[in-house]
Structure formats: structure tokens, C-alpha cells
Simulated assay, not measured.
Amino acid sequence: MPEPLWLVAANVVRWRRYGDGGQELRPGTKAYRGGAKVYVLGTYPGMGHEQVTTVGRGRASGRWITIDTGSRHLHTFRPKLVHTPAVLRHAALAARPHTREEAEELAGLLERLAAEYRETHHGAPHPTPCRCHTCLTVAGPGGLSPA
């Protein structure tokens, strides 16, 4: 059994803005269902952490997949001591080991940057009503934000 490893865990946004000016909404991403838990295996520092390598259960197959995704499609970044053998196998190929402190620091950075990327990516007002992650977070779990 592989040794546990500190990684950054996150959840896929339930709804994301899509299309011309972000006026359409799509659930989750092409690879992951909205709300799915994923683990960050790596980042691309030269690109400002806009893209991260993740491992999680795929939308279609339910199998563990490793894929690059936009950090703006993830939220609630947090450090997690991972024991799941399938995740550890994927991490052995891509992740460099983190200490708990490094995972906490990276989780805080990614949370801040992902929120910024969600707001600036489309550069247009939100549709009305909007169910994107940002609007749902502001409006609360039961309501829709007017934009």
C-alpha cells in the first residue's frame, strides 16, 4: 500500500458560464460532473495557475482520470491527506510530494486565483438569472442571483 500523500482537493463548480460572453450555462465540465471532488496533482506556474492537472472520477465512465482543467472550474480548495490507492497511483506519476503546510499554502493561492479567473474570463455581465458558481455563492444555496 502506498504511503499517504498531502494533496490539494477541490470541487468542480456545479454550473459554469460558457459560450459568447459567458451567456450560456453548462453543468460541471466536459470531463467531470458538477460537485465532483478532484485532487490537484500539479500546476503550471508560467501560466499563472490558470491550468491545473487533476485526478478525479470521470463524468462518463466513473473511472479515475487525470486531466488538465482550468482552475476557474474548481472551488473550495483545501489540503487533504490522501489514502485512496487509485489517487496515489495517479499522483506517483505526476505529483511532487507536499507537506501539509505546502498543501495549505497552495490551496489558499488556488482558491484566490480561481475566483479571480472566474470573474475576469468572460469579461461580460452574467446572464439573468445566473446559476454560475459565483452567483450561487453570493445568493446562497436556495436562490438565484439577479446578476
Rank of each mutant, 00 (worst) to 15 (best):
P146G: 07
E111T: 07
R112Q: 14
S61V: 00
E24W: 13
R112K: 14
H75P: 02
A9F: 02
E24Y: 09
G46N: 04
T69N: 13
M1G: 15
R131S: 13
V8M: 03
L106H: 09
R96A: 11
M1D: 12
R96Q: 11
G123T: 09
R57L: 14
V138W: 08
A139W: 05
R131G: 07
H126E: 00
R16G: 15
D20L: 08
Y39N: 00
C132V: 02
Y117L: 14
D20I: 04
Y44R: 15
E102D: 03
P45M: 13
H133N: 01
P4A: 15
H98L: 15
G48L: 04
R16W: 12
L144T: 08
R78F: 02
G35S: 01
P129I: 10
Y39D: 00
G35H: 04
T69W: 07
I67C: 02
K80P: 00
E104G: 12
R100A: 09
E119N: 05
T99Q: 01
V55N: 08
H122E: 14
D20N: 03
G35W: 04
H122S: 13
A95L: 01
K80S: 12
G143L: 08
G108C: 05
R26W: 10
M1V: 14
G140C: 06
A139Q: 09
P129T: 09
E105N: 06
E116H: 06
D68T: 11
E24A: 15
H133A: 05
W15I: 05
G22W: 10
A147C: 07
I67G: 02
G108Q: 09
Y32R: 07
G46Y: 04
T53W: 14
H122I: 13
G70I: 07
T134Y: 12
A60V: 10
H133D: 04
Q51I: 10
A147Y: 07
L7A: 10
Y18F: 15
P146E: 04
G140A: 07
L74R: 03
Y32M: 15
H83P: 01
H73S: 11
L110F: 07
G34S: 10
Y39H: 04
T84A: 15
A115W: 06
R26Y: 11
T128A: 08
R33N: 15
H83S: 09
L113I: 02
T66Q: 10
A86H: 10
E24Q: 15
G46A: 02
R72T: 01
P141W: 08
F77V: 00
A94K: 11
H98V: 00
G123H: 10
